[in-house]
Design a protein around this nucleic acid. Structure first.
Lengths: 336, 336
DNA sequence: CTGTTAGCGCTTTCAA
DNA sequence: TTGAAAGCGCTAACAG
């Protein structure tokens, strides 16, 4: 219609509208004005059909803890259902919790010509900066999610603020306890970046509590949870609250039930699965902090689609997802 | 491709694939099998383009409380951004909180031929059953959201469970108070269905608290909040907790600050806006229960799109959204 | 710098 | 019951 009204060919209009060059400034201006005047909205279906563009994006993330990443995948698939018709495909690659292994896998993806982009959940922050930059510099788009690499040139980040997550955990312990004397913090021997952040946040919140006693961070061994938890019995003998900063909340709950403690401690942690849910219902766990993994998965997928397929500009550069408080009263909504 | 391999024309294949009739059982079977064999995925862009289908859906909902419905609109627009290119348009119509007024508006929409569907947030449940059924019976699709009309034939509902919302409010009062003696419940003179549900849920949770004293439901006048709140000062003199079941949480917070109460009561309510947020930060409000209006708006819009434009079947018939607990520690994530 | 043309995969009308 | 053909709005290769 623009072409008709201006006595131009559709191709000229197309070039003008999309800044493909080879258009005189005069016609360019005419076209842009006309488009605005008649409030032209491009027909995306026609555009997709004509371009026949097909894209494959690699999604790389750890497999542990399983239940968390399963929900992320649910969210990815939810977005995919709406957009894969338009030529957007993905491949999911799971990695161990090892910087070296992740490096290798990501390097291969960036080197190869098999993918048009990478969505990546690094288990640590700074070690990946150079690798990500290498990709982005040669025009290979890299997005981070769940864990960021903020000093790199990644195009976008979707995920939670783990410092704040630790602070919120501290606040929850505060709300659920009454005149507490002693808190314990539990993490893993193989402590990841995000666990460390959580603990820093927790401590920050508790910094001015001079009358409080803290034990920990007590360390669990991922490959021998049961034993390493039962080893903590003496440390937990008379704590009022326990903060589990790693992915072993249900295991800790299970261990505590077996212990012979002076008083039942308030137990706070992160994320949710069926076991955690049961322990909330049984008042073993008082609250857990969730970060809506389904939404995270859906969001990063839609953002990458919009960027790669619709060539939409990225304004913000990150989306920090909200932290949700889950207790007995609303836990049922968080289980899928 | 299917047509090629089978020596048929594309139109026959099209008819077969979409059960448009006029296909012999033999060819029908052949086509279906071939499609499955080569895992045929229809190209939605081509389909949209060829059909040139355009749809207009009416969204009808109350305007009060403003801040809540603004967030719903944000969610609707978020979905719209992705799908309006495909010929999906909406028109938003706001109504007063009056059954009669809503009736009139909805009736007009169902009678007229201007819209292809209706998304409707009724302020009450049963009164709209017949009207909704009238629409659905004549093939005019009606969906409910925020408030349901479960006995009607509406095709889908997106919204919260308000009974459960009241229960959760009660649990929160429980968590935040310590050995409470007396709780107050506040609602409006012009009490809507959803406020009533919340109070029923609240009472259900508190039913076995024989040692507790309850005042209320105290009633506010929407058109004279300040005055009707200050009138409650004597009732609130020595309560330990207040549950605001209506949309006047920030007004109540403001009123309480001015009162000369024996002890600072724990204040719990629903939803969030800038004023509520400030009062949470200042420890005037302890917690508020949110139901992610942005998500609700986005979800109902996508569901209606999928149903009307993609002719997707509706399996579940409803989506009950989660109830989120917002306190000082995570409130900043809930403000937009 | 501009225009002509073919074609993306599907739907729909009309004729056989 | 089937097929031929036009066309949806846009893109891209090519010629001028």
């Amino acid at each position: 219609m623009i072409a008709d009204q201006l006595g131009l060919s559709t191709s000229t209009v197309d070039r003008a509208l999309h800044n493909r060059g080879s258009v005189s400034p005069k016609t360019l201006k005419k076209v842009i004005e006309k488009a605005k005047e008649m409030n032209y909205q491009p027909n995306q279906s026609a555009s997709f059909l004509a371009k026949g563009k097909h894209i494959l994006v690699a999604f790389v993330f750890p497999e542990y803890p399983n239940y968390f990443w399963e929900e992320i995948e649910m969210g990815i698939n939810r977005a995919l259902k709406d957009i894969q018709h338009y030529g957007f495909n993905i491949e999911i690659i799971k990695t161990p919790d090892s910087v070296a292994e992740q490096m290798k896998i990501v390097e291969n993806i960036i080197e190869s010509d098999d993918y048009n982009g990478l969505v990546f959940a690094p288990i640590d922050s700074t070690p990946f900066t150079n690798l990500i930059d290498k990709g982005v510099d040669k025009g290979f788009p890299v997005y981070t999610f769940n864990n960021d690499s903020p000093s790199s040139k990644r195009l976008f980040f979707v995920g939670a603020d783990y410092l704040d997550s630790g602070r919120l955990a501290a606040e929850l312990l505060d709300i659920f306890t009454n005149n507490p004397q002693k808190f314990a913090v539990i993490t893993e021997e193989m402590s990841t970046f995000q666990m460390q952040q959580k603990i820093i946040g927790f401590r920050e919140y508790m910094a001015n509590r001079t009358t409080l006693d803290f034990v920990g961070p007590l360390k669990l061994n991922r490959y021998a949870f049961e034993k390493s938890i039962s080893n903590l019995e003496k440390d937990l003998k008379n704590v009022d609250g326990i903060y589990v900063a790693c992915g072993a909340l249900s295991e800790v709950a299970k261990g505590i039930k077996k212990m012979d403690l002076k008083k039942k401690p308030i137990l706070i942690g992160h994320d949710i699965n069926k076991e955690i849910y049961q322990n909330i219902r049984q008042d073993v766990i008082s609250a857990t902090i969730c970060q809506d993994p389904i939404y995270q998965g859906e969001l990063i997928t839609r953002i990458v689609f919009n960027h790669l397929m619709l060539e939409e500009k990225i304004n913000t550069e990150q989306n920090i997802v909200k932290l949700e408080i889950v207790t007995k009263g609303n836990a049922k909504y968080y289980i899928h």
